[in-house]
Amino acid sequence: MRHSKTIELSEGRLATVQELRVKDARRLIANLTGVGLPDMLGDKFPEVVGLLGDCVQLPEGEDFDDFSLGDAKTIIDTFTEVNRDFFAMVGLEHLAPTPSNNSTSPVSA
């Protein structure tokens, strides 16, 4: 069974991130050879999202390029968390955080 996580970016704006399948990993590797993983999770993430098929489902009618930086970071962090097995297989487990039950809500001043 694929790991999956639905996150609320703001009230009513839900995104779902699913674990990569073998075919998704192959497509990524074939299309992003020579691109460093930090680039894949940074500047090239919109391109990566296009290669993921159903692995990242954005809120309906929204495009990754129009997200706030906070929304983009939330999706990237969730992607690395859900796909920690993939990152471990390619020797990059340090990029994937271990899931936690701690609140990620902002702390007020």
Rank of each mutant, 00 (worst) to 15 (best):
M1L: 03
K5G: 04
K5V: 06
E8R: 07
L9T: 03
L9A: 01
S10C: 02
R13A: 03
L14I: 09
T16M: 10
E19L: 00
E19P: 12
V22D: 14
K23E: 02
D24M: 10
D24E: 00
A25S: 15
A25P: 08
R27F: 11
R27A: 13
R27I: 12
L28Y: 11
L28M: 15
A30K: 14
A30C: 12
T33S: 15
V35Y: 09
L37Q: 07
M40D: 09
G42P: 00
G42H: 00
G42Y: 02
G42Q: 03
G42F: 02
F45E: 05
P46N: 07
P46E: 04
E47S: 12
E47C: 10
V49E: 01
V49A: 08
G50V: 08
G50C: 01
L51K: 03
G53D: 00
C55W: 00
L58M: 08
P59A: 01
E60F: 00
D63H: 06
F64Q: 02
D65I: 01
D65W: 02
D66C: 04
D66Q: 13
F67M: 03
L69P: 11
L69E: 02
A72S: 05
K73C: 12
K73A: 09
T74C: 11
D77R: 01
T78E: 00
F79E: 02
T80G: 10
E81V: 07
F87V: 08
F87C: 05
F87P: 04
F87W: 12
A88N: 13
G91V: 12
G91K: 14
L92V: 07
L92G: 03
H94W: 08
L95H: 12
T98D: 15
P99L: 03
N101Q: 14
S103P: 00
T104A: 03
S105L: 05
S105G: 07
S108E: 08
